[in-house]
C-alpha cells in the first residue's frame, strides 16, 4: 500500500509543475543552428566537382554541368542539380565535402507532400529554399582557402 501511495504522491506533485509540451503546428518549433534540415543550393558557387554526388551514402544527388558560357573563364558551371528527397537521409556529408560551400543545410524540416513526385527537388527549388540557412557549417572535408584542409 505504501508504495502505491508514494507513487500517487509523485503524480499529484507533477500536476503542479509547468507544462513541457509545445503546441506544435501553432507554435513553430525552433531548431538550433546546427540542425540538419533540407539543403539550400547556391548555383553560382558550384564548380561541378562531383564530390557531393560521390560521397552521398544513398546516391540521391544527380547533377550535370556544362562548360562555362563565358569564354574567358575555365571550368564548368552547374546545369542541373537534383536531390531525391525520398532517399536523402539528411546526413550532412555533402555539405561537409563541398569545397566552395555551394550546398548548405537549412533548419527547415517540413517537407511533407501529397505525392512522391513532389519529393524530387530540382535546382531552382533548392536555390529558393534560403530561409533559416545554417550558419555553422564546419566543412571539415574540403580544403578552405586560407584555413587548410581537414579541420
Amino acid at each position: 500500500m505504501k508504495g502505491l501511495l508514494k507513487g500517487l504522491g509523485v503524480t499529484f506533485k507533477a500536476m503542479t509543475k509547468p507544462k513541457v509540451t509545445i503546441a506544435y503546428p501553432d507554435e513553430p518549433l525552433v531548431m538550433p543552428d546546427r540542425f540538419r534540415g533540407i539543403q539550400h543550393f547556391i548555383p553560382e558557387l558550384c564548380i561541378v566537382c562531383n564530390q557531393c554526388a560521390r560521397v552521398c551514402p544513398t546516391d540521391c544527388i544527380t547533377l550535370t554541368g556544362k562548360p562555362n558560357p563565358d569564354p574567358e573563364k575555365k571550368g564548368k558551371v552547374i546545369d542541373t542539380f537534383d536531390i531525391n528527397f525520398e532517399i536523402c537521409i539528411l546526413c550532412d556529408l555533402c555539405t561537409e565535402v563541398c569545397p566552395t560551400e555551394a550546398i548548405v543545410m537549412t533548419n527547415n524540416f517540413e517537407l511533407a507532400a501529397y505525392s512522391r513526385d513532389d519529393l524530387f527537388k530540382d535546382r531552382q527549388w533548392l536555390r529558393d529554399n534560403n530561409k533559416n540557412v545554417r550558419q555553422d557549417n564546419n566543412n571539415i572535408g574540403a580544403p578552405q582557402p586560407g584555413k587548410g584542409g581537414a579541420k
Binding site: 538550433p32 546546427r34 539528411l90 543545410m105 564546419n138
Partner: peptide, 23 residues
C-alpha cells in the same frame, strides 16, 4: 535537445568520424 545542439539531429547523429568527432 542537447544532441540536437551538438550534432544537428535528434536521433541519427552521424557525429563521429574516423579519427575524431565532427563538431
Amino acid at each position: 535537445n542537447l544532441f540536437n545542439e551538438l550534432s544537428g539531429a535528434r536521433l541519427t547523429y552521424n557525429y563521429m568520424r574516423v579519427g575524431g568527432v565532427k563538431w
